[in-house]
Design a protein around this nucleic acid. Sequence first.
DNA 1: GTAAAACCTGACGTGGATGTGAGAGACAAG
DNA 2: CTTGTCTCTCACATCCACGTCAGGTTTTAC
Lengths: 127, 127
Amino acid sequence: MRIGALATTTGVSVRALRYYEEQGLLTAARSSGGQRHYGDSAVERVHLIQTLYASGLSSRTILDLLPCVDAKVNTPESRALLRAERARIDEQINQLRDARDRLDAVIAASESPASGCAHVESTALVP
Amino acid sequence: MRIGALATTTGVSVRALRYYEEQGLLTAARSSGGQRHYGDSAVERVHLIQTLYASGLSSRTILDLLPCVDAKVNTPESRALLRAERARIDEQINQLRDARDRLDAVIAASESPASGCAHVESTALVP
DNA sequence: GTAAAACCTGACGTGGATGTGAGAGACAAG
DNA sequence: CTTGTCTCTCACATCCACGTCAGGTTTTAC
């Protein structure tokens, strides 16, 4: 498939796909005219890249991680990197849970009392 | 306390604190000489702002949210905004869980087999 | 063969949360 | 009073994952 088809099937822009290649995250065969051609596995690859981006990883970190994911590299350093990023993600999940709980407190306070509800215990957000 | 003390106690840079004020997220009393003075509650305030930033909210969204948090505003729109942001955070938590699980699969594959471990079932990342 | 659609490589623009430096004023300590 | 540290307000710089436009080439459809 060419880049436009990959873009539509993955929901990622053409520009982003070229950027992934520029960063070394995604490779493509080239036609005689220089156009990129991707195999079906590229779809999963792009989804993985998107997932990692959405987790707050930089393209540089993803670039370091992908060789581990491709199981071509397995050194103590690569394992440490994997564990470190896993820990970072875990920490971020906890942070998000905290934020969600705070919002839940605000929502509960704003919805349960009678209409108007002009004031809330100020400790709701200061546990 | 002055801005430097607030910065050190919260771990946020002086520049960032001025930026929060510029965005309307944080207010400060001013001395006769124009210097900012904060009460103790500013520490919690900054932590809240940081939490919301870390959840991927923009300063504009936080600005819209803070009146709800301060319990000064409670309109149908504000409640809808709260619920929408809560949903966004929930979605992001799920995305992070997904990424963490993928990394866990890679970690498990790279650590459990004997040393070397040159290959991994390719389905590990394609559930 | 021809026109439309897709693709190519540069290269500059963007937005948001800061970093950074300049030059000047404020304030506590001696 | 003086010195050193902190703070003030501009205002420009940075990073990063793209958006976007320009000008040209390739592929596809008829």
